[in-house]
Nucleic acid binder design. Structure first.
Lengths: 163, 163
DNA sequence: CGTAGATAGTTCGGACCCGAACGATCTCAA
DNA sequence: TTGAGATCGTTCGGGTCCGAACTATCTACG
């Protein structure tokens, strides 16, 4: 598209512009492309799958985590969704308002809140997730099966190193 | 940490929970780990490098794009930073308020706005970017040089497929 | 038994995120 | 020359994002 730089142009400009500095260009390429790929994939999912249900990315992830574990505590959901407890509070308020989840105070430990999907929420995930998975397949369609396994493993190790 | 599931536990639960559905688990593993890795890496950078300059992730990326190209139009910056023009407007307002960038209306085309770093902004990037790059090295420290090259290439192809 | 310290979730303020709508500007065809 | 259509950036409303502060609850030690 006119006015925009291709990925190659950008990486070329970076190499030229920062040549004098003592930098690790390989590390830079990995992380820059990690964020680009995550961003592009997320935008694709939001555009093709989530928009029609008026779900944000994080709202979907939170629903997914609660769906996967059937009953989950908010501190667990926040951790697995990769958001703070403050953020999760707000997202759950939105999802609860739309009737997709229910929050319950723990009986044994009054500090804890557990979250369950409502019947409406379960129907939504059962319908939405196969479409989401189709979009996931779309973004990895240029990779062979072996490349996908290698990529998943490499990404796990990046996550571990960053935590 | 107590109460939190490990990555292995989560992936195991996913396999168990969704076994009956006709899903592509390899694609799922790639995208799930893509978002986890990006999120973990971003949190690491924000904690270790950006927090002390009171910069958000996106504010830093916007500064970086404008720094790399020396003079850039807002539509280009938005595209390369992966945010909408609406979002960029707000981020630039913040950065301009802090004295890091300057906006200028195009003389030839009154629709366009170009962005340049101020002297203060340039000093900040010159100081900050080597630290940022060190954090980048940290998150890929468990990968060999070859693995980094392969990873960067795989991620580029995911970005292309998603766009 | 009482209190200090820790943990959990919520609220607040400020920053980001985006689609839609708007005003301003540009281009091109009639 | 004019007007329709396109493009650009900003504003708005609603949602997200998080650290800090707060309230509530739990645990362990003296």
């Amino acid at each position: 598209m006119p006015g925009q730089h291709t990925l190659d142009e950008t990486e070329s400009q970076v190499a030229t512009r920062l040549a004098g500095m003592n930098l690790d260009f390989e590390a830079m390429a990995v992380t820059a492309n990690l964020f680009r790929a995550a961003n592009a994939a997320r935008n694709h999912m939001e555009r093709t799958v989530l928009a029609k249900s008026n779900l944000t990315w994080t709202a979907f992830v939170v629903l997914w985590v609660a769906w996967i574990w059937e009953t989950a505590e908010t501190r667990e959901i926040a951790s697995e969704a990769g958001v703070s407890k403050a953020t999760l509070s707000g997202v759950l308020t939105t999802l609860e308002g739309r009737g997709f989840v229910e929050r319950k105070r723990g009986q044994k430990d009054g500090r804890l809140v557990t979250v369950e999907l409502t019947a409406s929420g379960k129907r939504l995930m059962k319908k939405l997730f196969p479409e989401f998975n189709k979009a996931e397949r779309h973004v990895v369609r240029d990779l062979t099966s072996t490349e996908q396994l290698v990529a998943a493993d490499t990404l796990r190790r990046i996550t571990q190193a960053a935590n």
